[in-house]
Every structure is written in structure tokens, then in C-alpha cells.
Design a protein around this nucleic acid. Sequence first.
RNA 1: UCCGGGUUGGGGUAGUGGUAUCCUGCAGCCUUGUGGUGGCUGCGACGUGGGUUCAAUUCCCGCACCCGGACCCA
Length: 432
Amino acid sequence: MYDRLKGFRDFYPDEMGARREVIDAIEDVARRYGFREVGTPALERTRMYVDKSGEEIVEELYAFEDRGGREVAMTPELTPTVARMVVERGQALSKPIKWFSTRPFWRYEQVQQGRFREFYQTNVDVFGSSDPRADGEILAFAADSLTSLGLTGDDFEFRVSHRDILGGLLESMDADVDTRAAIRAVDKSEKIPREEYYGLLVEAGLDHEQAEAFDEILSGDDLDDLVAFAGTERVDAAVENLRNVLEAAEAFGAGEFCEISLSTARGLDYYTGVVFECFDSTGEISRSVFGGGRYDDLIESFGGEPTPAVGVAPGLAPLSLLCQRAGVWPEEAPTTDYYVLQVGDTRETAASITRALRELGHVVETDLSGRSFGAQMGYADGINAETVVIVGEQDLADDVVTIKEMESGEQTKAPLSAFPPTSGRPTYDDYA
RNA sequence: UCCGGGUUGGGGUAGUGGUAUCCUGCAGCCUUGUGGUGGCUGCGACGUGGGUUCAAUUCCCGCACCCGGACCCA
């Protein structure tokens, strides 16, 4: 026996069926928004992540030197890769570029609830539009994805904030502030005691009084107050932008899921405008389910033309937690359209019937083990076969097969000349 | 990397310093012309390495993995 690696999971058919259903639902929504699927490598140069996130990040990567002496890493996220792709094609791509992709990523980090070392995300991004409607479309896509899974406004909420509001406020406070540190503090504010939060803000460069005022104005969530408090053009513009984004989200049908929450910051440094996180409305899942936001500077920092971007990346693991709490995670039992049962030496006829049914597009199984009638029926039952086609020596002598509807147990004969037909999905009712 | 709790047939469990209970599952048979109910038979477990002991699944230590949390969250 070999052990599975920590944080890596196997998915057996039942669970995989549920995952497939969820991924398909999300991707269907993405396609309806006109996002186009992209495929991307599992390995990239390690330098790409170091340049974007700093040297420390190597500790969290599955990184190694390949046989050609290249420093490579298994991709821990998609954003740098799609940024690279956008830069590489440059002006050949018509804007806005709308891409999506579902695939695994790898991070060498501590396993926790909803967090694994190999995890799946659907990344959805818009490049080349700074219009608030692009942010609105991302929010609407996220909301539609969740509702397509059966979730409702009672189950989740999007807490929407704006990097420039936080940055602009700090700037307006006339102190020498480490904006990054302050924003990190804001991001943690709901998880730590208030005094510790103030302590972090003071460390970032505010005095205690300013920290309190900053906290108060953020918790207020009143945009007019913010504008008045800061009184700067930057905050003014940011508030205006946030309002426009929310208006666009509303127009695309996601309004009821969005609420302003200025204490939502995301830990990422590269966000530049609107940021948002999806939370479990019941509060049972303490961490965010997923997040997204605007990152207008990344493409340029990768050597491309300045290209605004906004995106979101729901992860399957936290999403499944959310769905399970809400009671909408799919319960998948295997289903089978037909089981072709063989009695006696009828394998040739049985095989041709099986093949014909499969050509009609159905899910069809037949005996692979030479099992007894009873054992075959038991197997057919076990795979939830809807219809069993009994191909027996006695029936064949009369040029018929028996069609049995498993749920009711009813059965009837069908002439071999008429079964299977050249189209459709023949069942008991068609021959009774 | 750190803290806490775990690990008994495929799944779920009981239990014990003298190698293990029950349910379910899987396979076969009763039953190669009838499944989801029944009967019989079989399969199958103490995560791993070391220590203590006459004897360890049981007690002790390390490790692996699992669950939860801290840190981190690009």
C-alpha cells in the first residue's frame, strides 16, 4: 500500500460526479457571459512568482530544478499565467479579453478546512476594460454561478470594498503610513481583538487617535461620510467608482448579493480597485469562500501595455463547504440507461444490441464476467439501470428480447427486428 | 513551521496487556429466466517504525496520514 500525499485527494465516482456537476454549472454560466476557456501549463518558471510576490513565496511552492537546469514551479495560481499570456499576444487580442479556466493548483501549505495542497479553482477574468461594468459583470457572474448551484441570497453575500478608498483615506490622514501594512491590518480586523487591530494600525504609522477614527469611518460603511471625512479627490473618485460598480452589478442582477464592507481588503498586494469576498451568510464558515477584484497594474508590471483587469476565482473546496452547509451539494448516485443481460450463450446478439444502444447515445452496460442471471440482475440494480434488456436463448428462438423496467418490475417482449430502433430511447412503455 | 484531537476489515463500529464484536460491503451459492426482501458460505482490520513486557492492537516515543485551529492566504 502506498500512502496518499498530505493535502492531495482522490475522488471516487460518487464524489467526482458531484464535483463534475458543480464545475459544469459554473462553467456554463461563464460561457453564457461570453468567457472563453483557456488551457494553461502546470509548470511555470519560479521567477514569475518571485517577481510578483516576493522571495518568501518560494517556501509555499512546489518548486524544483528541471533536468534542463530551469527553476520551475507547479502553478500556485492562474493570474500570473494569464497575465503572461495577455502580454505575449499583446495587441493581437481584441479587448475586452474574457477568459475562464478550471484546473488544479498546488501550494505547499498547511492543510485546513477547505484548504488543500492540490485544489481546484475556476478563474474568470476580464482584461482591457476599466469600465465599472466589467467589475459588475464579474460580480454578476459570481452571483449567477452560486445561484445556479441552488444557493440563494440567504446563503451568501459579497462584501465589496475598494482599495483606493482605504489607500486614499490613509493618505488623507496626514501621517507617514505604510499602506500595505495598514491594509493587511484592515483585512484582519474582524478576526482579532480591537486593541490588537489598533496596535497594528499604529505600527503601520497612524497614531492611536487616527486609528480609532479610521476604524470608525470604515465600520460606518457610509460613502457620503467617507467623502466628507477624507475630502480628497482620490477618495472622491474611488467612492464614485465603487458606486458605479455596485450600480452595474445591480443592473446585471447581482445587486441583492452585494453589500459595502470597507473592512474587506483581501491580503493581496496587487489589487488596485474594487475588491470583494464571498462569505457564508450564516457565518458558519469563518473564512471567505472566495474573492476577487481589480488589478490594473499587473499586466504592465509583466512588461505589457497598461491593461486594466478584473477577475474572480471560486475554489471548489470552499464552495463545496458552502453548498453543504446550505444543503445543495449534489448527491450523486450512478445512473445507467440500460443493462443488457445475457442468459446462456447469447453474447454475440447481446453485444450487438449493446453496441446499437450505445450508438444511440445511451449509457449501456453488459455482462463482463459470465455471471448468473441473479447476479446480473443484482448488478443491474446496483448501477441503477433504468431498463434491463434480457437476451436469452429461449427468447432468441422466437426472435424476441425481454424489456424490463427495473423500477416497476414490469416486463414485456420486443421483436428483435424492432429492437433497438434506429433512434430514441426505447423503454418498457414502447413495447407494452 | 506550531498547537489540540484522532487512526481497528472497502465503509461504519465494539473491545482488550494473552491477535478482535457487530452492521454494512464485496464475491460465490441457494437460483444461468428474474434484482432491490431472505438463507448459507467465503473475503477482509488493529497506520508505520522503535521501546517497555514472558506477551503490545492495547502502555511509552518518533514518523506518516486524517480532522480542527494558529501562522499564511499570491
